[in-house]
Design a binder for these strands. Structure first.
Length: 486
RNA sequence: GGCUCAUUGGUCAAGUGGUCAAGAUGUGGCAUUCUCAGUGCUGAGACAGGGGUUCGACUCCCCUAUGAGCUACCA
């Protein structure tokens, strides 16, 4: 068997859609699982949609996710160029298109947009249109074609698909699929601007680059027969097709920009880490068959068997991604964690506090980095809270009791020299023991007083230690004032 | 409208003729804890419907329903 070669062939049109990223991931995994090659090819045949900077996004995404390509525009492996506009400039596509014309498998078409539009027919009020080319130009004589060509009339080259018969292809996931040729449109291979369409360039390049497994989203399933016909027309061996199930939003519709989390960049902005994103999308449409769900890229390479890819569409479930992200944050080594978390902490904490300690506190409690802000804002400034917060049935405490507890603890804390967590604990626990009250009864008022929050990351000791003695006392006195003037 | 594909708990999913139909996430409860988180235990929750085939169907076939994708000089 020949060496496995897969390719990621994105169009530089903007952000990295998670569906595309998953395709890239699967392509990488299929290749690496077999020790094969993973190539990058830029499909920039649509000049209209080209977005400046999009290529950088592609490179950067592959880099940060670890999907390292073996060949590509920046890594020549002998199949270059790896950018379709450059290949177009070399006349590669036109050359092959002409081969097809000679074989009668394609033909020049000089039809204008106007004529084409008369072919459209509106079937229902749902503006569903059937557009099928009528092969008008297929019947042009050689002389007419020559005349048109020399006259410089714009043309496209269309694939010639017979009206009769059927076309069958095989997909590794969906099995054997057969369609009537009558259903297939004579699709355009070469556009009037001299560029190939995706449909054509893709087939030509996949062959020239010796791609063995073509992985793509299942929105291409219905056009696959046309590609099959192209391979047959050339007499080329078809690659193994691996069509992946669609990724949808909560409404079960194709994930689009409107969902707000359709791209890799969106997710990064929303506080997700790359490993979690990769892990999560790997599981959208694929399962290892075991109960394991947390996989590093290396583990995925080892485990990935594309035959286990699912057929049905998968909903992109943010709740589960968040959970998984939290798992990754918890396991993250501190150096990287601080680097990622500190910027978010600095957004809300401007005082001279030990931000590392705050980071430690939230590390096991956040799911995304965006969770940090609301969790730690009280370190900067105590919020204006309601004294009702001191009423807690389970802690067996209320406003009166809290007031007296705070009043009694205040002098003890004022006299405390060692303001370490252990030092604070010793004083407060000493008080609680002496009074013979529940831990919660003694601690609830304090934690509330220094945080002004119902819930906080960490307990009273940790908070007091971080905000320091002076600020702790200020907040406790404030609490006493609040409770007294109730 | 036509074509193609799909259909196991809310979601991701295991499962390929005989299972009390895994697991995860989410969700309810209990316990532990100064709150939160976490951890432990525990609960509820699924084979779209109808016909076949078979001794026996989640698993195979057909129909229906529902959903999705495609139907561009976009990919």
């Amino acid at each position: 068997m020949s060496r496995v070669r897969t390719r990621y062939a994105p169009s530089p049109t903007g952000r990295m859609h998670v569906g595309n990223l998953r395709t890239a991931l699967y392509e990488y995994l299929i290749a690496k699982h077999e020790g094969g090659d993973f190539l990058l090819r830029i499909e920039d045949t649509d000049q209209e949609r080209f977005v400046e900077g999009a290529i950088d996004i592609i490179y950067n995404t592959l880099k940060v996710t670890g999907l390292t390509h073996d060949e590509g525009p920046d890594k020549d492996g002998g199949c270059g160029p790896y950018v379709q506009s450059e290949r177009q400039a070399r006349g590669i596509y036109m050359e092959y298109a002409k081969q097809l014309i000679e074989k009668g498998e394609a033909y020049y078409c000089f039809c204008t947009k106007e004529r084409l539009s008369t072919l459209k027919s509106v079937v229902s009020e749902d503006d569903k249109e059937i557009i099928k080319y009528d092969k008008h130009c297929l019947y042009l004589s050689k002389e007419e074609i020559e005349a048109n060509l020399t006259a410089g009339i714009p043309y496209v080259i269309r694939q010639n698909i017979p009206a009769e018969g059927t076309t069958t292809f095989q997909d590794a996931i969906y099995g054997v699929i057969t369609v009537d040729n009558g259903e297939l449109d004579d699709m355009i291979l070469m556009k009037s601007d001299g560029f190939p369409t995706y449909n054509f360039a893709n087939v030509v390049d996949d062959h020239l680059m010796r791609i063995t497994h073509v992985v793509r989203g299942n929105e291409y399933l219905s056009s696959s027969p046309k590609y099959t016909r192209l391979y047959h027309a050339f007499g080329w061996e078809e690659p193994i097709y691996v069509h992946c199930p669609l990724i949808t939003n909560e409404e079960h519709k194709k994930l689009s920009k409107r969902s707000g989390h359709s791209s890799f960049e969106d997710l990064l902005e929303q506080g997700f880490v790359t490993e979690a994103i990769v892990n999560f999308i790997a599981l959208l449409g694929w399962s290892s068959g075991t109960n394991e769900e947390i996989f590093s890229l290396e583990e995925l390479v080892k485990e990935f068997d594309y035959h286990h890819i699912n057929k049905s569409p998968a909903v992109f479930d943010m709740a589960k991604l968040k959970w998984m992200n939290g798992e990754y944050i918890k396991k993250m080594d501190n150096e990287r964690y601080y680097e990622l978390a500190l910027p978010y902490i600095r957004e809300v904490v401007h005082k001279e506090l030990d931000l590392y300690k705050i980071a430690d506190l939230v590390k096991t409690r956040i799911e995304t980095f965006l969770d940090i802000k609301d969790m730690i804002d009280f370190f900067e400034e105590i919020p204006d809270y309601d004294t009702a917060m001191y009423i807690h049935k389970k802690m067996k405490t209320n406003e009166e009791l809290s007031l007296s507890i705070l009043q009694e603890q205040l002098p003890l804390l004022e006299g405390l020299k060692d303001y370490s967590i252990a030092g604070i604990e010793a004083v407060i626990m000493g008080y609680i023991k002496e009074k013979g009250i529940k831990n919660g009864t003694g601690l609830w008022p304090i934690r509330t007083a220094v945080s002004g929050k119902q819930s906080t990351p960490g307990g009273a000791y940790e908070i007091m230690n971080i905000i320091g003695k002076e600020e702790s006392l200020r907040r406790i006195k404030l609490a006493i004032a609040k409770l007294s003037s109730r």
